[in-house]
């Protein structure tokens, strides 16, 4: 039911699901290709950028919105003792539907610029599943932190911008020449790994590093389980924090 409420809010501006990511890609294209002159050719850079940005936007929007979801539901929190994890989960669930539209847009971009579908694209299924787990984990952590101290809600946009710059949305992590530095970037920042995997699969037909992928999945699942338990235990404390 919360989901229905979320979905109906957005169904008003249904087209915005597609327009907004397209505008983001356009802005980045303008800055990094037209003004700064990226080493890549126009269309290749456009596809490269779309893949990175359209995937990243899922993470950034879902986690930002989920982080504020509990404090924004003050009315419900004041009225009934609901599991607090429901609020960020509803946001992430809703983002899944929105992202389905965004991924279709991405496929359209790939087809238009002559990247034909291949069997290798099936690797997207496990990749998206792992990405989803990662988003759920971060959404729960974000929502918990913002609840405990609202100050965190100021840090989240900053964190998102930091990740935007460090995850290789508009530059290629594989251009890092020092292999140690490259593996460090990919190991420390799972988003950089996931974005790179998107490109390897969709643009170059390469399978992702499965060990790394399963490692991220396991860590995400562990974080989700821990956060759900923590939120259940602190349900009333979180309510108090929201209401005071």
């Amino acid at each position: 039911m919360l989901l229905k409420a979320e979905a109906s809010r957005f169904s008003l501006g249904y087209l915005w699901w597609l327009i907004e990511p397209m505008l983001w890609v356009a802005v980045f294209y303008l800055v990094f290709n037209v003004i700064l002159e990226s080493p890549r050719s126009g269309t290749e850079f456009l596809v490269f950028l779309s893949t990175g940005k359209l995937a990243f936007i899922w993470f950034s929007k879902a986690v930002s919105q989920a982080s504020n979801s509990i404090v924004n539901s003050q009315g419900l929190v004041a009225r009934i003792n609901l599991p607090k994890s429901l609020f960020p989960m509803a946001v992430v669930q809703e983002s899944l539907y929105r992202q389905a539209a965004v991924y279709s847009l991405l496929v359209a971009v790939l087809l238009i610029f002559d990247y034909p579908p291949a069997v290798g694209w099936l690797w997207m299924l496990p990749l998206i599943a792992v990405f989803y787990l990662m988003i759920v984990a971060c959404a729960l952590i974000g929502a918990y932190l913002v609840c405990m101290a609202r100050d965190f809600s100021n840090l989240i946009p900053l964190g998102m911008t930091f990740l935007l710059f460090t995850s290789g949305v508009f530059w290629d992590v594989r251009e890092i020449e020092d292999p140690e530095k490259l593996s460090m970037v990919l190991n420390i920042n799972p988003i950089a790994f996931v974005l790179d995997a998107h490109r390897q699969i969709l643009m170059y037909g390469q399978a992702p590093d499965l060990d790394h992928l399963s490692y991220i999945a396991i860590v995400s699942i562990a974080a989700i389980v821990a956060m759900l338990a923590l939120m259940r235990r602190h349900s009333q404390l979180l309510a108090l924090k929201v209401l005071t």
Binding site: M1, K4, A5, S8, L12, G75, L76, R79, I80
Partner: peptide, 15 residues
């Protein structure tokens, strides 16, 4: 309290 402004009265009552 607890109303979702975007939803109809019916949906809110159901919720």
């Amino acid at each position: 309290l607890g109303f979702r402004n975007e939803l109809s009265g019916r949906d809110n009552a159901l919720l």
